[in-house]
């Protein structure tokens, strides 16, 4: 699963097989604002992430790394350039294709963004039930086993408000992975946590991603966790640092 193909020699127009890169970005430009206030955020960004790779994207605040993450996640409209995620071109993609791409992606946020009216188990179930083929029993079972993996089997029926920050982040990691995504996008997953729980959280993401063979792109400027990555990519002022 984790073979790293030679992505640089492939032509950008090719379609990817299962061993192709998980993410392939070419000539990506992005702007905020309109008219005279228009400001370029990303400048001609090129990069590839191989399937199964764990990559940390780091750089100073405002360098455009979060924007890049939201473009790869299909959460933001792509203005110029090509973004291919798991073989699907997102530039000019239809709504249905964008939604299909989102469903193959698990998101871990700086703020956990759990639904406060759902229990830990129900929050995880929300990502499982996107797959209509899974029965209610199977859904509950999978949510429970995901929460067990993140060490929360004794907190299944707790509402987020009754959990600590680290526990909430672990629930959101369980949620992101429960849908068996092929790609995990994480944005500053340690920022709201103390160093110990932060470390625990990213190690969880890394271990579970390895287990499921899924690719991870994590944005952070927490230098203490860089060692969990296969590769660290730096950005500055909207450009990739080679």
């Amino acid at each position: 699963m984790t073979t790293i193909p030679d992505t640089t020699t492939k032509p950008s127009t090719s379609t990817f097989g299962s061993d192709g890169p998980a993410i392939r970005v070419r000539g990506l430009n992005h702007f905020f604002g309109d008219g005279e206030l228009r400001k370029q955020i990303l400048f001609d960004v090129d990069f590839d992430i191989a399937a199964g790779e764990v990559v940390i994207l780091t750089g100073p605040s405002g360098c455009g790394k979060t924007t890049l993450l939201s473009l790869v996640g299909g959460l933001r409209h792509i203005m110029e350039g090509s973004v291919q995620v798991l073989g699907r071109e997102l530039f000019g993609a239809s709504r249905e294709e964008i939604i299909a791409s989102r469903r193959q992606t698990g998101f871990v946020f700086q703020l956990h963004n759990l639904l406060d009216f759902l229990t830990a188990r129900q929050n995880v179930e929300m990502s499982v039930q996107l797959d209509a083929a899974i029965s209610v029993r199977e859904r509950k079972h999978r949510a429970e086993s995901m929460l067990a993996k993140v060490g929360l089997s004794n907190r299944l029926d707790y509402y987020p408000t009754a959990l600590s920050g680290g526990q909430r982040q672990r629930v959101s990691i369980a949620r992101a992975l429960a849908g068996e995504p092929r790609l995990i996008l994480a944005d500053e997953p340690t920022a709201a946590l103390d160093s110990h729980s932060g470390r625990q959280a990213v190690e969880l993401v890394q271990a579970m991603a390895r287990e499921q063979g899924c690719t991870v792109l994590m944005v952070t400027h927490d230098t203490r966790i860089l060692d969990i990555a296969d590769r660290v990519v730096r950005m500055e002022d909207g450009r990739m640092i080679p």
Binding site: G73, L75, I99, A100, R102, R103, T105, F107, F109, N113, L115, M126, S127, L130, G179
Partner: peptide, 8 residues
């Protein structure tokens, strides 16, 4: 918005 990001 998170639900939308998940693919809802």
């Amino acid at each position: 918005a998170t639900l939308k990001a998940m693919g809802y």
